[in-house]
């Protein structure tokens, strides 16, 4: 009798520990943007700080719908439209936190315009996602300039989903050729993606 109760307790504990936690919209956004959860990775090199933000579908849908107050109307449709790809934000910031990234350590205006051209037109082909043995090209690329308003510039990047994405870590490799940094790799662990809490959807 005692041993049966003990087995039941262990099973119950296992069940509780394996269950994916749930989160409200606000909690989910906080979770995804918390560096401690492995979905936001910072890498400092030279005069620049590179930040990669993994964007789960629910997170993107919340941002797209523009409300974090618990209203989940339209969430399912938006989620479906975003489910074709895995998306990330890649932010490059000046280390001093003041200078616009495109102007940081440039010699002249020509350098500035070369950087704008690179990030607007060419950086896309230098970004890849390595998932297991597969190397995937960037299929979505959008560069957002800051126009001196912020010290960082953001690239929205996306890769087509493949079958192995449920088991492998994602390594985003950016082989930049304009800032003098070279290849920079970010690893988003599969276990960290699996640990993302499920969004509570009102019925």
């Amino acid at each position: 009798m005692k041993s049966t109760a003990l087995v039941c307790c262990i099973i119950a504990l296992l069940f509780i520990s394996c269950a994916t936690p749930e989160a409200t919209q606000e909690e989910l956004v906080k979770y995804v943007e918390d560096e401690g959860n492995g979905l936001k990775i910072k890498e400092e090199v030279g005069e620049f700080v590179f930040t990669l933000q993994y964007k789960p579908i629910e997170y993107m849908a919340i941002n797209e719908l523009g409300n974090k107050n618990g209203d989940t109307t339209g969430l399912a449709g938006t989620k479906e439209a975003l489910s074709e790809m895995e998306q990330f934000n890649l932010t490059i910031e000046s280390k001093d936190g003041k200078t616009e990234m495109l102007k940081n350590q440039i010699q002249n205006d020509e350098d500035y315009f070369r950087r704008i051209e690179y990030f607007s037109m060419a950086a896309e082909k230098d970004i890849k996602m390595i998932s297991g043995k597969d190397t995937l090209p960037c299929v979505l690329y959008h560069f957002e300039r800051s126009y001196d308003i912020t010290p960082y510039s953001k690239m929205v990047i996306g890769f087509k989903k493949n079958a192995k994405e449920n088991i492998e870590d994602r390594v985003i490799s950016f082989n930049e050729s304009i800032l003098g940094i070279g290849t920079i790799n970010f690893r988003v662990k599969n276990k960290d993606i699996k640990n993302i809490p499920q969004l509570i959807v009102a019925k």
Binding site: E44, V45, G46, G180, I181, G182
Partner: peptide, 12 residues
């Protein structure tokens, strides 16, 4: 350029 990139990264 390559040497500078390598050292920049190693120093960091």
């Amino acid at each position: 350029e390559f040497k500078s990139q390598i050292w920049k990264r190693l120093n960091q």
